Simulated assay, not measured.
Amino acid sequence: MPQTLEAQHRVPNALAGCRLDQAAAELFVDHSRERLKGWIKAGALTVDGHPAKPKEKLAGGEWLRLEAELEDEARFEPEAIPLSVAFEDDAVLVVDKPAGLVVHPAAGNPDGTLLNGLLYHCPTLASVPRAGIVHRLDKDTTGLMVVAKTLAAQTALVEQLQARSVSREYDAVVTGVMTAGGTVDAPIGRHPRDRKRQAVHAAGKPAVTHYRVVERFRGHTHVRCRLETGRTHQIRVHLAHQRFPLVGDPVYGGRLKLPAGADEGVKTLLREFPRQALHARKLAFDHPVSGQRMTLRAHLPDDLLLLIDALRDDAETMT
């Protein structure tokens, strides 16, 4: 059954003149402003028993009452999916996601997802929206994800993401030899013709990716990316937009390019690399309870290590 929330607060005189959504965010501190705004619009958060609009100004002294139902994740089955846990306490869980694992059930992937594994690992996550998931990685992207184990922790982490105070760094291997790092500041939105893809276009949402060169090879580059924003497929879209698509990317990679002069072993490895060469290597955030800055790192997975080692060995034969 869905979890029912009931709470009320009287608007203090100090908040007189504030908008309803602003006052609600100050009083119902366990919930994000966006979630509260949705409840206001749905009539689940009322003023003196009456529905109101988020922008309505308050005089002070009103009673704000919340009666809402949280999304119940118990409808998804817990599954004994092995999880690589990088950190865990009573408030947060950080996992190192493998390639091939879908984060959330959807059409075509009704089970066998990270969410199913989280519900098995920590059954109390059934009472937290999206089982505590606050950000996602693509199915074939590996690396670190933070999961909130309580509603209050989830609200705090979502607010950090919105404030861009969560630091996320990725390792990637791209086709082409970069001369230097840089920044891509280009809006991303759904592709105007192919609804399954994202694209850089003026009607998209702001998106900023910083990247720097780690190592150059014969026809490829190992780069390190840092996100300011978290748009769907952001690194994949931005680097392809710069004409440096990720190795193995089936959506944005374009035509396979093999470096002239490379040995057959390297060419075969590039032809057969089974996924986009992208790994979430570093994650930093403020702990939602202690406030301590948490920094976690995940080693490169074996397939990326093998690829980088092979490209490095091949590059050394050029000298």
Rank of each mutant, 00 (worst) to 15 (best):
A260G: 14
V184F: 05
Y170S: 11
C225H: 08
I235T: 02
Q162K: 15
G254H: 10
H220T: 10
G204T: 02
E215N: 06
E169A: 13
A207I: 03
H220S: 12
Q160Y: 05
I188Y: 04
A153E: 12
R243E: 14
E159V: 02
G248M: 06
M178F: 10
Q242S: 11
I235K: 01
F244Y: 15
V223H: 07
G182F: 10
V251N: 01
V184I: 15
V173Q: 00
P206I: 03
Q154C: 05
R216W: 03
H210V: 04
E169Y: 10
A156S: 15
K257R: 15
S165E: 14
L227R: 00
T229V: 09
V166E: 07
G254E: 02
H191S: 00
Q154V: 05
V174Y: 10
Y252F: 09
H220K: 03
Q160L: 13
L246E: 00
V200T: 10
A260W: 14
I188D: 02
L157W: 10
T183S: 13
R164L: 11
G182R: 13
H210L: 12
R168Y: 12
A207L: 09
G176W: 08
Q154G: 15
R193K: 14
T229Y: 05
R226E: 09
Q198T: 01
V166W: 11
D185K: 11
V174S: 02
D185L: 03
R226Y: 00
P187L: 11
E215P: 00
R224F: 00
A203C: 01
P187Q: 10
V173A: 00
G248H: 04
G254F: 12
R243T: 12
K196M: 12
F217G: 01
V158G: 00
L227P: 00
H233Q: 14
R226D: 00
D194I: 03
T179L: 15
R168K: 15
A260P: 13
G253Y: 08
P245N: 02
V213M: 08
M178A: 12
S165G: 07
V158R: 04
G219N: 06
L246A: 00
V213H: 06
G230L: 13
S165F: 00
G253V: 04
V223P: 07
K205E: 13
V213Y: 08
V247F: 02
R255I: 14
H233G: 09
Q160C: 08
A186Q: 14
G189C: 10
L258E: 04
V214R: 12
Q198E: 12
A240F: 04
V208Y: 06
A207K: 01
G230M: 12
V208N: 03
R195W: 05
K205Q: 14
L256I: 15
V213A: 04
V213L: 11
H220Y: 14
G189Y: 06
E159K: 03
T221E: 04
P250Y: 11
T232E: 06
R168H: 13
